[in-house]
């Protein structure tokens, strides 16, 4: 998986998130080969602000997705804080690259206004879903 992607995170229903799905523009690149091959997926323009470090398993990705204490501003103009272990099968996108259409994320998410505090619009630990789609 390389190039430009959109990460869409849908918090679990029990989290009562202010919107159904948070989306972020991301860039993917190979994340090294040793001790095992990986994939690094980072927020476009602020790579350390929202970062996924995945282990490439057999036709699947698995790894940690996190933000700093500042969270990350979604396309929907709300801020998301996240610390999760994500996994999902990799399938072929229309342009031939890989993408994840039905992934799960276990862990913590919190919501806030664009300039707001962590969790002011709610937070929870649960199993969420995500899509990492080619763009």
């Amino acid at each position: 998986m390389t190039g430009r992607y959109v990460l869409q995170i849908t918090p679990a229903a029990g989290c009562r998130a202010p919107i159904a799905t948070f989306s972020f523009p991301m860039d993917a690149a190979a994340g090294g080969a040793a001790p095992k091959p990986g994939t690094q997926v980072v927020l476009t323009g602020d790579p350390g602000g929202l970062e996924a470090e995945f282990l490439n398993e057999a036709q699947a990705l698995r790894g940690g997705v996190g933000t700093t204490a500042d969270g990350a501003l979604a396309n929907e103009s709300l801020r998301l804080w996240i610390r999760v272990i994500a996994s999902g099968p990799v399938v072929r996108a229309n342009d031939g690259r890989g993408e994840v259409r039905s992934g799960t994320m276990m862990g913590y998410v919190a919501f806030g206004g664009a300039a707001g505090d962590e969790g002011e619009l709610g937070s929870c630990s649960a199993t969420h879903t995500f899509v990492l789609g080619a763009r």
Binding site: R16, Y108, A110, E118, G119, L121, G122, S123, S125
Partner: peptide
């Protein structure tokens, strides 16, 4: 306050 906020996950949006 992170863990405390998380314990209030059942509150309606805008209540915190």
């Amino acid at each position: 306050g992170r863990v405390a906020r998380e314990s209030l996950a059942g509150l309606p949006p805008g209540s915190l």
